[in-house]
Design a protein around this nucleic acid. Structure first.
Length: 480
RNA sequence: CGGGACGUGGCGAAGUUUGGUAUCGCGCCUGCUUUGGGAGCAGGAUGCCGCUGGUUCGAAUCCAGUCGUCCCGACCA
């Protein structure tokens, strides 16, 4: 958690008192979300949606830069199509929503509202892939999907959620595997560079894989309350889906061959990650790269002649290089300060008669409350530098917090003790590879396997549960 | 889906035990005064008491059902 800062917003429950309530307060008070009359379906309000638009814009650029194209697949999947891949349908069946009627007429075959679109992409690839010259296919779509979750929470688990799903089709296993790794790296880079959230990369264990995948890679982030949040996944399918859906191409030797596939996705859950990774008792703290407003200008004594005009001119100048808003409402300055802090705006500029006279403005940073006086001549240099400094500081704080809450343990006792003494966090401990031991650790300590980090450490030589020789170091945690 | 708590103007609550005129604070509107950390005064508006049904002369209050929210489990991006 961030160093103690005076709590200035009274309407938000403090994190320490009740983290879950704090989260709910923030999403409501920062005007990200409004509930609707359908459970698990939320209105994403303009301020919240603008964060998503920024996430989309940056990620979409990264996808395009690596050769991907956007497409659109239908919302509905016929039951027979969904059932073609056995593991896949078993994984998703419990949470699909069904369309059974068109008007008053029952449908001949019921249609599922997509929970994910592997089946549709596969059907499509079966139609358009004939030759090795047709490969690879590097497709992505930005859509919403529906999963009929039992418990729901804004951004973290909703019944309908926005995401992007990439689906690619490659001639060789090697190439598909490279793609799987590449997209995971893009997600990890995006989290660090744009969201200031450090992540752990690695494969999921067998029991935790995506339904129908050969291998599932994930990025895991640590939240302020010590719980882990899966921030993105990238799956390697091998040729399993191709076989189930009859996708074949003629290779250079003119033999019919099954292609190898991948899929990968991130969701509006990332907004939940931002809230829980950077927020504090005064509300949201947004990383500048995705903040809808990077700089808010608050005119002081704006009724006095010339102040508003000067403030507008200031905002206009800043608009050339940052997303800026000037608040001309007649709310008091104090009200505005609290409001934009709650909404996590990275930088605030106070600008009043005193400043105008002295050719300066007062700049306040959201993350640490630091106030500095900036000569107007230095604005163009100072603001981008401060935005960058704020980003770096958020990332560093998140890394420090993760390090403080990462426990390297050689026994179940050590795990229990670490969690008891330091609270929830990432536990690094060895594992033999047996599912029984994975379950055993969860049963005994409460933490489940999150992933098998690519960056392995040799904590011990034996499985933390059964004592047999260990295969891997696993990252364990209580998860969202 | 199991266990618990809760739905009363936009928000937060009191009233529910023991049925009898719908209450308070904040916010909202109008005007004036204010403006460097959630401004002050005056006047004003806003309620199918979540929804459906039942009991009753009469229901926010009692009963049943249902929808939603939050917490704890199981499931999950």
């Amino acid at each position: 958690m961030a160093e103690k800062q005076k709590k200035q917003v009274e309407e938000i429950t403090s994190m320490e008192d009740d983290f879950a309530q704090w989260y709910t307060d923030v999403v409501k008070k920062a005007e990200l979300v409004e509930y609707t009359s359908v459970k698990g379906c939320m209105v994403i309000r303009p301020y919240g949606y603008a964060i998503w638009e920024n996430i989309q814009r940056i990620l979409d650029g990264m996808f395009k830069a690596t050769g991907h194209e956007n497409v659109y697949m239908p919302l509905f999947i016929p039951e027979s199509l969904l059932e073609k891949e056995k593991d896949h349908v078993e994984g998703f069946a419990p949470e699909v929503a069904w369309v059974t009627h068109g008007g008053k007429e029952p449908l001949e075959e019921r249609l599922c509202v997509r929970p994910t679109s592997e089946t549709l992409f596969c059907e499509h690839y079966a139609h358009i892939v004939q030759s090795h010259r047709d490969l690879p296919k590097l497709y992505n779509q930005w859509v919403s999907v529906v999963r009929w979750e039992k418990t729901t929470r804004p951004f973290l688990r909703t019944r309908e959620f926005l995401w992007q799903e990439g689906h690619t089709c490659h001639a060789t296993a090697e190439e598909a595997w490279q793609e799987t790794r590449q997209m995971l790296d893009i997600y990890a880079r995006f989290c660090e560079e744009s969201l200031a959230i450090p992540v752990i990369k690695g494969p999921k264990t067998e029991s935790d894989k995506f339904a129908g995948a050969v291998s599932t890679l994930a990025i895991e982030a640590l939240m302020h309350d010590g719980k882990a949040l899966q921030a993105g996944t990238s799956h390697y399918f091998g040729d399993g889906f191709a076989k189930a859906f009859g996708i074949q191409y003629s290779n250079k030797e003119n033999t019919l061959t099954y292609p190898h596939q991948t899929s990968w996705g991130v969701t509006t859950r990332l907004i939940g990650a931002i809230i829980m990774a950077h927020g504090d008792d005064n509300g949201l703290v947004l990383p500048p790269a995705v903040a809808p407003i990077q700089v808010v200008v608050v005119p002081i004594a704006s009724h006095k002649p010339g102040v508003l005009e000067a403030a507008r001119e200031l905002a206009g100048r800043i608009g050339a290089f940052a997303r800026v808003k000037i608040d001309e409402s007649d709310n008091s300055p104090g009200w505005k300060f609290a409001q934009y802090e709650m909404q996590g705006v990275p930088l605030r500029l106070e600008y009043g008669p005193r400043d105008i006279e002295q050719g300066q403005c007062v700049l306040v940073r959201r993350d640490n409350g630091e106030k500095t006086t900036v000569p107007l001549a230095e604005l163009e240099a100072t603001i981008p530098a401060q935005l960058q400094a704020l980003h770096d500081s958020l990332l560093q704080k998140a890394k420090d917090n993760r390090e403080r809450h990462t426990y390297r343990c050689a026994s179940l006792e050590e795990i229990k003790q670490a969690l008891r003494e330091n609270g929830d966090g990432f536990v690094y401990a060895m594992w033999c590879g047996e599912e029984a031991c994975e379950d055993g650790v969860k049963e005994a300590t409460g933490v489940g396997s999150r992933c098998i980090p690519f960056d392995q450490e040799q904590i011990a030589d034996t499985c933390v549960f059964c004592g047999k020789p260990s295969q891997h170091m696993v990252c364990w945690a209580v998860a969202y």
